[in-house]
Amino acid sequence: MLDVKTKSQDSIAIIEIDGEVDLYSSPALRKALLEMTKAQNKAILVDLARVKYMDSSGVATLVEALQQVSKYEGKLKLANLRDAVKNVFELSRLDKVFDIYESIEDAKKSF
């Protein structure tokens, strides 16, 4: 199962995901992200350190959230992508669309 935790630090809404994001589990991620975008969180940071696998439905969920955030001029950033997940973003050419950081600290400083 996918474990999705949310917390707030320095006015940044951080979402920590643990597990594999696929067609089965991506609705849980979508629900958490939609709650954040409905609340119009201006700064959302997705920590992917514990995500070993992400399929296109997971990527689509993040794209949808990015589009929602841009509607109210917020920011959504990604951090700690493992190689397998990074490859999916690169193959989809979405590594140029998302702001991706090597660490949570780097991402937090960028807001």
């Binding site: 296109s56 794209v63 589009q67 669309v97």
Partner: peptide
Amino acid sequence: LNEIRPGGLGVHLIKST
């Protein structure tokens, strides 16, 4: 791929691999 929208990436991931 220039079109940024949710969905439709699966076939691309298959064909590119």
